[in-house]
Simulated assay, not measured.
Amino acid sequence: MPKKHSLRLASKSDLKDIDADALDAFGKGASTKSLEAERATTKKKEPKAKEPTEPKAKEGRGRPKLPIKEKAVRKTFSMQPSNFALLDQLIDKGMDARLRINKSDLIAAGLHVLRDMSLKDFAKAIDSVKK
């Protein structure tokens, strides 16, 4: 029984070669066996290795490039229920100011404010929430 060929596994260039060879062979009245013998003797072209190139930047077109965001790291920690309630109150306050914020935004903002404080103010803030 002849071997079946899967067309799904063939690449587009292989299909074009098969179509061209088949048209030439059958146009001349050749049989499929002679076509297969001819294909077996011909060498396939080796694909050229592409050299890696840097993507070219479009000048003055399209959207401006945005800075790459850091990937978020998922960590878990515990907080007092009163602090979670405070987060919800601050989210509501943000909504009143027409800001769309979430808990992560609030925590990040708090960290940045603490970072920019003087040592004296930083120590006061930490002492006021420690229990």
Results as ranks from 00 to 15, higher is better:
2 P>H: 07
2 P>M: 04
3 K>W: 08
3 K>V: 06
5 H>C: 06
5 H>I: 12
6 S>V: 02
6 S>P: 00
8 R>C: 15
10 A>L: 08
18 I>L: 13
18 I>F: 11
20 A>E: 10
20 A>Q: 11
22 A>N: 08
22 A>G: 03
27 G>S: 02
30 A>L: 14
30 A>Y: 11
30 A>E: 13
31 S>N: 11
35 L>C: 00
35 L>Y: 00
35 L>P: 00
36 E>H: 11
37 A>W: 00
39 R>S: 03
41 T>L: 09
41 T>I: 10
41 T>V: 12
42 T>A: 09
42 T>D: 07
43 K>M: 08
44 K>H: 04
46 E>Q: 13
50 K>M: 08
51 E>M: 04
55 P>T: 09
56 K>S: 14
57 A>M: 13
57 A>T: 12
59 E>C: 05
60 G>L: 06
60 G>Y: 03
61 R>V: 15
62 G>W: 00
63 R>H: 13
65 K>N: 14
68 I>C: 06
69 K>H: 11
73 V>H: 07
77 F>E: 01
77 F>L: 10
79 M>S: 02
89 Q>F: 08
92 D>A: 09
94 G>A: 06
98 R>P: 03
100 R>N: 11
100 R>D: 12
101 I>R: 01
101 I>Q: 02
101 I>P: 00
104 S>K: 06
106 L>H: 03
109 A>V: 07
111 L>M: 13
113 V>W: 06
113 V>Y: 09
114 L>Y: 06
114 L>C: 11
115 R>T: 08
116 D>L: 05
117 M>L: 12
117 M>S: 03
118 S>A: 02
118 S>C: 01
120 K>V: 12
128 S>E: 12
129 V>R: 03
130 K>P: 06
131 K>L: 11
